[in-house]
């Protein structure tokens, strides 16, 4: 994180010394783009609040822990699709669930859809790429995540259970 700030600052200063006019223009572009998309981001936060109210962490944990079969994998993938959590909360949670005996396959379905499928980030994605592309990309991602879960189950020897 520190590197990210330092890098940005360094590039900004470098740019400033090379060409003040261009740097000013860059900042203008940055602000304009940010202002354009900010409402979509606020929408994302509001959606996130709504989903988390309906599906708090302990409910997610209970649904994931309900079994090991196909239904659990599908449920995990669906929950992963509609939720949005930062990585430093998700993986400790999954590590904990793993210790409680929840299969790798279910956790894989959950985390992969969580990262790749963005129902909550839909407003932002739509603003940039339009509805059709957004829907297609998310469907592809969902299918990919199911394959990944299946492969995970296979390699951990969980498929026949």
């Amino acid at each position: 994180m520190i590197y990210f700030y330092a890098g940005t600052l360094f590039l900004l200063l470098f740019s400033f010394f090379k060409d003040k006019q261009k740097t000013r223009q860059a900042l203008k572009i940055a602000w304009k783009k940010f202002a354009h998309i900010a409402p979509a981001f606020v929408m994302v936060l509001i959606l996130m609040a709504a989903v988390l109210t309906a599906l708090p962490e302990h409910v997610i944990a209970r649904v994931l822990g309900n079994g090991q079969g196909w239904i659990s994998v599908t449920a995990a993938a669906l929950i992963g699709s509609v939720t949005l959590m930062p990585g430093f909360i998700v993986f400790p949670l999954c590590g904990l669930l793993l210790k409680q005996g929840i299969s790798y396959m279910v956790l894989s379905a959950f985390t992969t859809t969580l990262m790749m499928v963005g129902v909550i980030t839909f407003p932002v994605e739509k603003a940039y790429f339009g509805t059709r592309v957004t829907v297609i990309r998310n469907v592809f991602s969902f299918v990919t995540a199911l394959f990944v879960a299946l492969a995970t189950g296979f390699f951990f020897g969980e498929l026949g259970q």
Partner: peptide, 9 residues
Amino acid sequence: FILIGLFEV
């Protein structure tokens, strides 16, 4: 967004 701005310029 600052990086995006610099990139575009």
